[in-house]
Design a binder for these strands. Structure first.
Length: 828
DNA sequence: AGCACGCCGACT
DNA sequence: GTCGGCGTGCTC
């Protein structure tokens, strides 16, 4: 109280700041601002605060108040790190929304958003006390070990010591050593971001006078020829560039660093330290003028028109219909209006190729942001976006966190890609959905682009929540691939099938090879055979952890579990009955590759699946070989569908579509469709029509029919319509605690799966969450209601609640098997 | 996230 | 007994 009186006396106010700490804690904390920092605090700036007993963290100021907290004494902030905010108000609102929407803490969002180099945290360092006179007697084993280690290495962290001792609890031991004055414990903070500094030189203006210059040369030539060279080199360089750096001069003149230093000492050169960018960008300035095709122009007009009423438009364009040019036009328009543009791509598509292509149009105003950038580079991009130097940002999902000033347009290419979703640490966000919110905050527009839109996106577009523009023809007149569906059953009956290849497929493959074209064979299973079966007793080896049948891998000769990675040797006699009649059932990519090489001995065949791409560069090697046509036939799993541009692939064979049509969950049709459509879309490039051969037992399957018609409409709508008429019950009982997951979207999927399973047993009485619009789940009604088990049977109760209520209750009240969840809302 | 505190099982 | 693991609660 005295302090307040004093403050009033001095006419100074006492401020408090609420800060976001980069930790997974539920609330934000209040710190007191020392008077001398009153002028420095501002929302969005970073401050250093002590949190807990000793740790220091970088926190972001979220609010400034004058009300002192009632229940505790606030600590002081220790330092204000920034001259101007590094996080904008809009970003803070965005963070709050994300924490709310994806059910995590502000601190977790901050962690994901801010480049690590902007977050400094202290680390506890252990050093040997100088006063300690190496008298190691009287130390116990562990203490001795620690002191020994500190003799070798002057500084250790707490976790180093935990590792050293092989135990988790080390604090008590360290404390004891500290009390005996043997060690020091200190907290160290270091700034991680270091701007790259270069020394730039200018010639002392005295030497603009020719006579003075001549005199200088005369002097130098005799006594210091290297220095004369340096001055000469400077004259040469400065003719073409404004600033000459010390490094350049060293290189150009052949003079050493010492010669140049003495020139600086003699004040011939004037040195200046300057901050230079790590992001080497050359303005290529190659304004590549292009004209839109009629179809592109039409799509562009339609998008523009729809943006007048709608904030989000889906551009549904078949593979290679030339969506990029449409994006570029829209981007140019947004830039012309003085706005910034964000162009999101899945990580895998962020290749130098794409980046170069866009740089041709947007030059140095384009920034790139993705996970391969190191910390310092990320900070530089961050700052350039903040100060408006970058007008266009090309980035992977984390680019939604950049500090945009005025975002006019967000383009989300390949909008259906699952890599837009972050799964592991929280925030478990989907960059596509987050971007839509972000654009809205900036009053900007969003264009979603895809050849195979996500279910929910397409639904939103068709129900007029989003606009919709379509491009159905390939750019440059290449026709869509011809799709042929072949009945495996029929060919088996006619005995025209060889191994797993129908005569139709074989003919197309041979034809392609004869034309020096390439082929992709798609088989949605890796390994050689997905199960081993004893013909006598029907025994099948199963994983000891997961209880799924083990897949045989020929290259290792072992049985593998595809869930947990467990391996065991493949038995030659049945472990159950001793019979030798063991048979491999089913087939995977390995077997396809094997048998094809027998049928086509001269073809160069490669395989692309998890097994062949596990090591670091192997994926790139395969892609390069394909590009350079060192591969004729590529056998692969769904990896081959991932937005990669293949050179001369004209034939795509889908070995067995049935395995793709039987995904075990309720999103089956969507996934099958997308996969089939994506794989098919790869056929035919460079002006040549491709062909897709789908081998199946189920030639009339509705998904296959949809793929042939390239038609999302009916499929999506029938799926949706089937899921509408449910009624709502008053409570439900948790019967399975497996419906528990940190990720709200996964939790929802599991609930749906569980409901579907229960429905098999209890029929219509189980009503499950079934809508596939997973991205909007939080506010959807869970129509599912678990069962109340009774001795004499089952009775079903109903509830109306949202997934959010369920998760909240999972998090707050500790639910156990049999607990009853009461919804907040009145169900009737 | 760290760190302290308290409970509980397995060792000298 | 006592040490260390582990669950729980708190940090402005």
């Amino acid at each position: 109280m005295l302090e307040f009186a004093e403050a009033a006396h001095h006419g100074r106010k006492t401020f408090f700041v609420e800060v976001i700490l980069p930790l997974a804690i539920a609330k934000n904390y209040t710190y007191r601002v020392p008077f001398e920092m009153n002028g420095a605090v501002e929302v969005g700036k970073r401050v250093v605060v002590q949190f807990g007993k000793s740790k220091l963290y970088t926190a972001i100021i979220d609010k400034i108040t004058e009300t002192p907290p009632e229940k505790y004494e606030a600590k002081y902030i220790l330092e204000v790190l920034d001259d101007r905010p590094v996080v904008t108000q809009t970003q803070l609102q965005f963070w709050k929304w994300m924490a709310e929407y994806y059910m995590c803490n502000d601190g977790e969002v901050m962690n994901a958003a801010l480049p690590t180099a902007l977050k400094l945290a202290s680390e506890t360092k252990i050093t040997l006390n100088r006063e300690f006179l190496a008298d190691k007697s009287g130390l116990n084993d562990r203490e001795f070990l620690i002191v020994e280690a500190l003799d070798l290495q002057p500084e250790l962290t707490v976790s180093d010591i935990a590792k050293l001792l092989g135990q988790k609890t080390v604090m008590p031991i360290l404390k004891l050593l500290f009390e005996k004055s043997i060690i020091n414990i200190s907290e160290e903070v270091s700034e991680r971001y270091k701007p790259r500094m270069r020394t730039f030189l200018t010639l002392n203006p005295v030497y603009q006078n020719q006579d003075q210059l001549k005199e200088l040369f005369g002097l130098l030539e005799k006594r210091a020829p290297k220095q004369a060279d340096a001055v000469l080199a400077y004259m040469k360089l400065s003719r073409h560039q404004k600033a000459v750096s010390k490094n350049e001069l060293i290189e150009e003149s052949g003079a050493g660093s010492s010669s140049i230093n003495s020139l600086i000492e003699k004040e011939v050169f004037i040195a200046k330290e300057k901050n230079v960018s790590r992001l080497h960008i050359e303005d290529e300035g190659l304004f590549d003028i292009f004209e839109l095709s009629a179809q592109q122009q039409e799509a562009l007009n339609s998008i523009r028109q729809q943006f007048e009423q709608k904030d989000v438009v889906l551009l549904h364009g078949v593979t290679s219909s030339g969506k990029t040019q449409v994006y570029i036009r829209l981007m140019e328009e947004a830039l012309a209006a003085g706005k910034q543009v964000l162009y999101l791509l899945p990580e895998i598509a962020l290749t130098t190729h794409v980046i170069e292509r866009l740089r041709q149009y947007f030059g140095t105003s384009i920034g790139v942001y993705h996970s391969r950038f190191n910390d310092n580079e990320r900070v530089e991009v961050w700052q350039k976006v903040l100060n408006g130097e970058y007008r266009v940002v090309l980035g992977a999902r984390s680019a939604v966190f950049l500090p945009f000033q005025e975002l006019g347009l967000i383009i989300i290419d390949e909008e259906h890609e699952v890599s837009y979703k972050q799964f592991d640490p929280a925030p478990r966000y989907n960059a596509r959905d987050a971007a839509i919110f972000l654009a809205n905050k900036h009053n900007g527009k969003v264009l979603l682009g895809s050849a195979t839109p996500a279910f929910e996106t397409y639904y939103n577009a068709r129900s007029h929540k989003y606009g919709l523009a379509e491009m159905t023809e390939r750019f440059g007149g290449t026709e869509l691939p011809l799709i042929e569906v072949i009945s495996i059953a029929e060919e088996t009956k006619k005995k025209t099938i060889q191994s797993h290849f129908t005569s139709v497929l074989m003919l197309d493959v041979q034809q392609a090879l004869a034309n020096k074209e390439q082929v992709i064979l798609f088989q949605n299973r890796r390994g050689y055979a997905p199960l081993l079966l004893c013909k006598v007793c029907a025994y099948t080896p199963k994983c000891i952890n997961c209880d799924v049948s083990l897949t045989f891998h020929k290259h290792s000769g072992k049985l593998h579990c595809h869930y947990c990675g467990y391996k065991e040797d493949s038995p030659t006699i049945c472990p159950a009955c001793g019979s030798t009649h063991l048979e491999y059932k089913g087939f995977g990519t390995e077997k396809i590759e094997d048998e094809l090489s027998l049928l086509l001995p001269s073809a160069r065949i490669a395989r692309m699946d998890l097994d062949t791409t596990r090591s670091r560069n192997s994926l790139q090697t395969i892609l390069n070989d394909l590009e350079e046509k060192k591969i004729d036939v590529l056998v692969g799993t769904q990896m081959v569908a991932k937005g990669l541009d293949f050179a001369d692939v004209t034939v795509i064979g889908i070995i067995n579509a049935d395995s793709m049509l039987k995904f075990p969950d309720y999103r089956a049709n969507e996934r099958s469709f997308q996969l089939l459509a994506q794989v098919s879309g790869r056929a035919g490039r460079r002006g040549k029509q491709g062909k897709v051969v789908i081998q199946t037992y189920d030639v009339n399957h509705r998904v296959i029919k949809q793929v042939i018609e390239n038609n999302y409409r009916d499929l999506y709508f029938t799926e949706m319509e089937e899921r509408k008429n449910f009624s709502y019950p008053p409570f439900f009982r948790v019967i399975n605690l497996d419906i528990k997951h940190k990720d709200p979207e996964i939790l929802y999927n599991q609930a749906a799966y569980l409901a579907a399973e229960l429905r098999k047993h209890f029929g219509e009485r189980v009503i499950g969450p079934e809508t596939p619009l997973v991205s909007r789940i939080r506010n959807y009604y869970i129509k599912s209601i678990m069962l109340k088990f009774e001795k004499d049977g089952v009775s079903v109760n109903k509830v109306k609640t949202t997934i959010r209520d369920v998760i909240t209750q999972f998090q707050t009240t500790k639910l156990s098997k049999g607990s009853i969840i009461q919804p907040d809302v009145d169900p009737y």
